[in-house]
Design a protein around this nucleic acid. Structure first.
Length: 362
DNA sequence: TCTGGGGTCCTAGGACCC
DNA sequence: TCTGGGGTCCTAGGACCC
């Protein structure tokens, strides 16, 4: 036993932040997504639980959401507000102490983080012998986050990050749940591999095609078969997911971005080459500003073009030398357009700038 | 009812080099 | 007159996550 890993996930985060500053919305169906106009192209980022009761969920087109729940309040995505709220949450987590010992926090996104005892503390802790109760600490996490931010969260407890992450979903909303090595098979063995963090619809289907339809089936699968079907790296990794393996250590190292990109789905498809070039130039300049804020030049430029039929292609170019010049990067991006065969109007354009790796790698 | 925007990582084929 | 094998870079696409 090396210690517990906790996974903290805010409940209906974007909607909760909106309700926090507009208490009149409490309990009402609230849908956050796009520019807040359900007649536009855009999807739901977060629906409040009241909206979910109408069948509204993340990723759903706003036009569908409004049909299902005409009475919902539609709000635009307000990134700065969620950045700010997220910082409050992470600060509250970092301030936690377990019997006086500091914790490590690994941020996964706006509304998610792993929490674990910092290694030094853990070495002295003799977690089991001390009788530290992870359930008690999980409840403490929820109470402290609520007190510090006014936001509710759920907490998963595991022997590693995979187990903790999956456990959170069973605790939602406003609850806790534990999955450990001792209960992995009983709790997860009969479920679809899709229940695992990292396995999506496509992989679920490919696994089913070779007769693997449960987590236990994946755990007991022939490594040779998995390697042959999914590759030498992905195959063994999938099997380890089935066995409930994950990192036993929370990594508090601050995140270093590999790339910054900007993309836009147009309300009306673009069909004019000059307009398309101008849009790419604009997106490239915005992405250039993002990497400038990081203080690192771009090593590679990638454009993305999606047409009216949703067919999507990318074109990329490695620069002769890294550059942070917005106009240089914009011209490279526009130049890549020439390598896209365009036979119909354009729905989406994107520009991504991949940065040179920092000294010493990531 | 059409299907966002921000990311990461892996795979696979071809080029190129020794 | 048949053409190795390994390593690395570049490019395009796919899958997944929040």
């Amino acid at each position: 036993m090396t210690g517990w890993v906790f996974h903290v996930d805010l409940d209906e985060f974007l909607a909760a932040v909106e309700v926090r500053r507009r208490p009149d919305l409490a309990g009402r169906p609230v849908v956050v997504g796009g520019r807040g106009d359900p007649t536009e192209r855009g999807v739901v980022s977060t629906a409040s639980y009241a909206a979910r009761a109408f069948g509204v969920g993340s990723g759903m087109p706003l036009r569908v959401a409004v049909r299902r729940c005409p009475g919902a309040v539609f709000l635009p995505v307000d990134k700065p507000a969620y950045d700010e709220a997220s910082a409050e949450v992470m600060a509250a987590l970092r301030a936690l102490r377990w019997d006086g010992d500091p914790v490590d926090v690994q941020v996964l996104g706006w509304d998610e983080a792993f929490v674990g005892l910092a290694p030094g503390a853990e070495a002295d802790a003799h977690v089991d012998a001390d009788g530290r109760d992870p359930q008690v600490f999980a409840d403490r996490i929820r109470a402290e986050v609520l007190a510090a931010t006014g936001l509710h969260c759920s907490v998963g407890i595991g022997d590693n990050t995979l187990q903790a992450k999956i456990a959170t979903d069973f605790g939602k909303p406003r609850g806790t749940h534990r999955i450990g090595d001792d209960s992995w098979v009983a709790q997860m063995g009969h479920r679809s591999p899709r229940a695992l963090w990292g396995i999506g619809a496509k992989t679920e289907r490919r696994l089913a095609a070779v007769g693997i339809t449960t987590v236990s089936g994946l755990a007991d699968a022939d490594p040779e078969v998995l390697g042959a079907v999914f590759g030498p790296s992905t195959g063994p990794w999938l099997r380890s997911l089935g066995r409930g393996r994950g990192a036993t250590r929370v990594d508090p190292t601050p995140w270093v971005a590999r790339a910054h990109g900007r993309e836009e789905t147009f309300q009306e498809d673009l069909d004019d080459d000059a307009e398309i070039a101008e849009a790419v130039r604009r997106l490239a300049r915005r992405a250039a500003a993002d990497i400038a804020a990081d203080g690192r030049p771009a090593a590679r430029v990638v454009i993305k073009v999606r047409n009216r039929s949703f067919a999507t292609v990318t074109r990329s170019r490695t620069l002769p030398a890294p550059s942070d010049e917005p106009e240089v990067l914009a011209e490279v991006a526009v130049g890549l357009l020439a390598r896209v065969e365009r036979d119909r109007p354009v729905r989406l354009l994107g520009v991504r700038l991949e940065m040179a790796a920092p000294e010493g790698g990531y």
